[in-house]
Design a protein around this nucleic acid. Structure first.
Lengths: 345, 345
DNA sequence: TTGTATGCGTTATCAC
DNA sequence: GTGATAACGCATACAA
């Protein structure tokens, strides 16, 4: 069983006493080839089980019909959905996805980006990792004239197309809702403030308090409570205060909200009566805890599709040189009110 | 701002009064080049911001350093974890992943596979979709001498490397555990029996009953209850029987188990006292329902890594022609006992 | 240790 | 409408 070379357009040409050019044209459905021979070529190609070599084609054409994706984690709900959305939209256009995960490591992020550049991807879609503050690898992408699109976790200082959630508005909505439910001392679990998305959520929290005439109370704000465990620790700390909060907005994630719920329940607080809880991200499990957790849906799947659509729209407009206009597309997330904050009405 | 061509090894060569071959050798760290010039070349390459063209390199070498992945859904926990595991292992070896999702459509699966063949991927990893019974597109992959590895949902009749869960053993363990907990009338929510994995789970259930001397009761088995909704419907049906089951093994998924739990609770059954429940897949939420749900962990992340490791091992052995020996690697899943089945001890 | 020549499989630009 | 030829960027067999 010899390794058997793949059949090329030359093989087809030889068989039909034609040249490779005609075969190439026929297979690309060019109009400059007689319908009759075209049909013949297509038929024999199928018979010979011809598979085009995308590598060669792309090299020749100078493009890869491929979009590179760099995400911190590909098995986290939010990112997995973004990717799924991207995949759906790009597939329809015959594009492929090359996916890398940075694993929240700055070093690996750099390597991923470089790999994608080397692969000659037509576009790079990235959600940066928490770590790091030097973004020359991304500036490099821009300098190479490769369209760069940032999603969700974006670097403000880079002039690229950005697709983000309106984190501030969503957080505002969440806190306003809690206030409307009668909560008056609302605590905040905030994320690392070096990242824009978490700063925005904090801003929404502050504005909602201000607009309602409620004071901002420093001791009710806990930093960087990202996980379930940290959420638990933070909420224990908050609930042990002389004047504990009557609600907690876990702006970091639903996981931290879950930590809050567990601690609160263990400490004898009744949710939502003694304590209101709101998370962020609409993870599946928020629907099935008891009580179910109020949260914010980010339309992650749609965000992926939006990114792809934007890319294609720009491609179609600008022709070959897709210089994507830097701007910010803000997807407005939706507050999902559930039992953990429903006290009235 | 002209589109500015990328710098190639020729540009570097010209700058240094060398030839492209030397540059190529130097950048590939060949020993056949003076350390001195090598250093110089590497240095200037960096200065000129040279990015190798993987497309050209791969075309020349006849391989793409890329593994193609086809999964039914990339945003489902299990598959997302398999992909993440694959990614981790392949990344270490400098390989890339091209990921497609078949969206449970047979047609799309075929297209995905063909795209990957055209891309000259070095290996295709697939978990087939539920739909379809013609697997000529996969046979085609084998015929083209592209290593094919099947994961989890495998087609038995295809002679390929397969990495699966020992579904039968895991199901046996689950049911045996329930019996040991004193449950005597154990119902089964089974998946579509045209798929091997679901047949195996049913087999494990049957064997466990048999080994314990318990009768197989036909009316306690419900077909194709895959989702939460179907799980709910099926369990309502079971629990309304004159002689309802005292336990239900939701062999299809944790989602159906959740449906069971919700219906049971609503109908006034106490879990685990009146009714034991066991799911499948160890989804995150099973830990936080009340009561928490006993389930089976499939080590999805590890499965992904295993697949990659197997591929590389065979690659390293066989050299260029990675003809992977067809065999079955069975990863033994683990029963995670939680409150929903814990009656004694 | 370096240079020369050739080809990977396609497509694009000429000719005819 | 079809054929000949060059080029995409790189890697390698061979020569020097």
């Amino acid at each position: 069983m010899t390794p058997k070379k793949r059949v090329t357009i030359y093989d087809i040409a030889k068989r039909l006493n034609l040249t490779a050019s005609s075969v190439s044209r026929a297979l690309n459905n060019s109009i400059h080839v007689k319908e009759e021979t075209k049909a013949l070529i297509v038929k024999t190609a199928a018979e010979m089980n011809y598979k085009p070599n995308t590598l060669a084609s792309n090299l020749r054409k100078g493009k890869s019909q491929t979009i590179g994706v760099v995400m911190p984690r590909i098995n986290q709900n939010f990112f997995a959905n973004v990717i799924a959305g991207l995949e759906e939209a790009t597939y329809k256009r015959g594009y492929n996805l090359v996916i890398c995960q940075s694993n929240e490591s700055h070093q690996k992020e750099i390597q991923c980006v470089n790999t994608l550049i080397n692969q000659h991807v037509d576009c790079i879609v990235i959600s940066v990792c928490v770590e790091g503050d030097d973004y020359s690898h991304l500036q490099n992408v821009i300098d190479q004239h490769i369209p760069l699109i940032q999603v969700d976790r974006v670097v403000d200082s880079l002039d690229t197309l950005k697709v983000i959630n309106d984190n501030e508005q969503a957080s505002y909505d969440a806190v306003a809702h809690m206030i409307q439910q009668g909560y008056k001392r609302i605590g905040l679990l905030q994320g690392p403030q070096n990242m824009a998305i978490y700063r925005q959520r904090t801003a929404g929290y502050i504005n909602a308090l201000k607009d309602a005439g409620l004071p901002f109370i420093d001791e009710l704000v806990v930093a960087s409570a990202l996980t379930r465990e940290l959420g638990a620790i933070s909420s224990r700390q908050l609930l042990n205060l002389p004047q504990p909060p009557d609600a907690i907005f876990a702006s970091t994630s639903d996981f931290s909200a879950l930590g809050v719920l567990e601690v609160a329940t263990a400490m004898g607080f009744k949710v939502p009566d003694d304590l209101g809880i709101c998370g962020y991200a609409n993870e599946d499990f928020t629907e099935i805890t008891s009580p179910s957790i109020t949260t914010i849906d980010q339309f992650s799947y749609e965000m992926g599709k939006t990114v792809a659509d934007l890319f294609f729209r720009e491609m179609d407009n600008k022709g070959k040189e897709a210089v994507i206009a830097p701007r910010v597309i803000s997807v407005r997330p939706k507050l999902i009110v559930r039992s953990s904050t429903r006290r009235v009405g």
